[in-house]
Design a binder for these strands. Structure first.
Lengths: 146, 146
DNA sequence: ATCACGGTAATTAATCTAGTTACAGGAAGT
DNA sequence: ACTTCCTGTAACTAGATTAATTACCGTGAT
């Protein structure tokens, strides 16, 4: 199953808006940082807007963060762009006339949910502000070398 | 970002071998429980064999569990069939000449790893014997009703 | 009015999964 | 030996998902 980069790109996008708040933030400029197309950026912004994380005005650049970044967790972003999609997939079509095939979904579902909840709890602990702070630290490390 | 049903099907397969140990365990029979094709079953068995979870003899039915099921965790099965594939995908191609694009992979990687480790820790806590026990309980519930 | 944008739909290309077909070879009964 | 029932794999196909692209409409500022 192919892995989506929407989640990573959305975090990228939000961090970019924060860090380059002074620039003329067009979808074109943001796309050049993510190295994707402006349409992809606008699609992501659409999902983030629906989730109430940013506000935008049609026809005008400059998306605005709707909340302070320390109030937005990675989990919030994940839900915004990926919905409540599950990390582990149950095979929905198995033989119901079999002890295994007839009950496996019920049994696996709970363990999968536990694992996913554990992962989500970690994502909930990290805010976008943490990401921005880390980005600046990493950049400072690079600058120190050169 | 979603795990294929190989993981679920492999758990199914191993549980089936245990529960129906008395039957003539051909890949055809197992496939009829998973509702897939015998070839898919044999492919999965190949991975499980390489991981040392079962032994098989070419030309002969009856795969054999290489260890007691309480010594095989869900995480072991996950690694056997999915490798160390990550649940969250970093976007590898971003603009290096940008504070965000140039450092985002490094930063996200650690948080993603934390989240994945948390999920894996949960998977490691559950053994295939737990799954089998639960399957039998669920089946008993059904039988009690009818 | 023009120009620079965002919003969104439709299409395409690449990739992954699972199902299928095909076939070589092992094991066991006759 | 021969036949039959299997496993082990490779090759191919169909479907689903993702991201990139093309295209077009509408908005807002100058």
């Amino acid at each position: 199953m192919r892995v989506s980069t929407r989640f990573s790109d959305s975090i990228h996008l939000l961090a970019f808006i924060k860090i380059y708040a002074g620039a003329h933030l067009t979808s074109d400029l943001i796309a050049s940082s993510i190295e994707t197309s402006p349409v992809v950026v606008r699609r992501l912004m659409g999902k983030l807007r629906h989730a109430g994380l940013i506000t935008t005005t049609p026809g005008t650049a400059q998306p605005i963060l709707a909340k302070p970044l320390n109030e937005i967790s990675l989990l919030t972003v994940f839900y915004a762009v990926e919905g409540d999609k599950s990390l582990f997939a149950v095979d929905p079509k198995t033989n119901p006339d079999c002890i295994v095939g007839g009950n496996i979904q019920t049994v696996l579902q709970q363990y999968y949910q536990d694992a996913q909840t554990a992962a989500e709890a970690r994502l909930a602990k990290t805010s976008l502000q943490d990401i921005v702070d880390n980005l600046l630290v990493e950049q400072a490390k690079k600058d120190a070398i050169h």
